[in-house]
């Protein structure tokens, strides 16, 4: 059986700017795949091509084995889309919206009605009555939007930044819904700017930058690529940061320094050896440390490392060699 989603060299230009520049993507059946990237990386354009809303300039893409351009109707029968902005009729109520979409999926009047009731119940919207969607809270709107994208129990569900602009509680609700869907065998493509979201939900992650996939793998694999474990050291006196950095072995790689928090963080190859080395060196130099911790890199660090945007992101990354 072919993969649920395949993008093969997809390109899309807007004037001078290439929104998608040779995008390659493969998503297996029943998995959650994260597309992770900064604003303007081409994530939304990618989703719009895969959901038949946008015609690619070049390349080929299939969803559920059907071509998104030549067999758009077949694709549309098999997908659900939760876009960045609520795709609902704001003037109508929740039940009216779901019934309308159900009819447009050709469920028939009666089935559309019962399906709307099921979904309202499942997403905790059963008591909204006839209230117009424009009077809903952000979280309610998002849940109704998600319900609308699930009317036909789609094989492939596209979630384009599903939690952007939501408060933490609503975000947790959306996450819980997505997790329960995946249990049912749905394939999910999720775009997000939040590393935590990709880490929490996705089986595999493609890091997208400037319209192409620059790295691909599980969250752990991506983290491992930044150079393994890191040691974080918080000093008592920020003035001693320079002296402390000079003590570090030359081969530690990219060290980040946060003077405000009196902290530096360095990737280390040999976990325990490095820890004892750092502790001993600081003691001998008479530099007092408040806290020393050994940890795995965050997906944030992996992301910055991969996109090469550490300066943009405002982190004071310096080459260990230069600091010495």
């Amino acid at each position: 059986m072919t993969d649920a989603i395949v993008a093969d060299g997809v390109r899309k230009r807007y004037g001078e700017k290439a929104a998608l520049d040779d995008l390659h993507l493969t998503v297996g059946h029943g998995t959650v795949h994260g597309l992770l990237g900064p604003n303007g990386a081409g994530k939304t354009t990618g989703v719009r091509v895969l959901t038949t809303l946008l015609r690619p300039d070049a390349g080929r893409a299939t969803v559920g084995g059907y071509d998104v351009v030549r067999q758009a109707d077949q694709v549309r029968r098999r997908i659900g889309l939760l876009g960045q902005h609520a795709a609902l009729d704001e003037e109508l109520g929740g039940r009216q919206n779901l019934e309308m979409f159900g009819r447009l999926y050709h469920l028939g009047a009666r089935r559309a009605r019962t399906r709307a009731d099921e979904l309202l119940e499942r997403f905790g919207l059963a008591d909204t009555g006839t209230k117009a969607v424009k009077q809903y809270s952000g979280g309610m709107r998002r849940r109704l939007d998600l319900a609308a994208s699930l009317i036909t129990e789609p094989q492939v569900l596209f979630l384009d930044e599903p939690t952007t602009g939501l408060d933490p509680r609503s975000r947790a609700e959306v996450w819980a819904s997505v997790r329960s869907l995946v249990g049912g065998g749905t394939t999910v493509l999720l775009t997000t700017q939040y590393l935590e979201e990709a880490d929490q939900l996705a089986d595999r992650i493609s890091v997208v930058d400037q319209g192409r996939v620059i790295a691909d793998g599980t969250a752990d694999e991506l983290k491992a690529r930044t150079g393994g474990d890191r040691v974080d050291v918080v000093l008592r006196d920020a003035g001693q940061l320079g002296a402390a950095l000079a003590l570090l072995p030359i081969d530690v790689g990219e060290v980040s320094v946060d003077a405000d928090r009196r902290l530096f963080s360095a990737p280390v190859a040999d976990r325990m050896g490095a820890l004892t080395q750092v502790v001993r060196a600081l003691q001998e130099a008479g530099i007092e440390a408040e806290d020393i911790a050994l940890r795995r890199p965050t997906l944030d660090e992996a992301f910055l490392h991969l996109t090469g945007r550490s300066e943009d992101a405002g982190a004071d990354a310096v080459r260990a060699g230069e600091a010495v």
Partner: peptide, 17 residues
């Protein structure tokens, strides 16, 4: 200019409906 048009267009409905 509303998001709902995107949903309509991503559904298997008749184009000019």
């Amino acid at each position: 200019n509303k998001g709902v048009i995107d949903r309509f267009r991503s559904m298997p409905m008749a184009n000019g409906a």
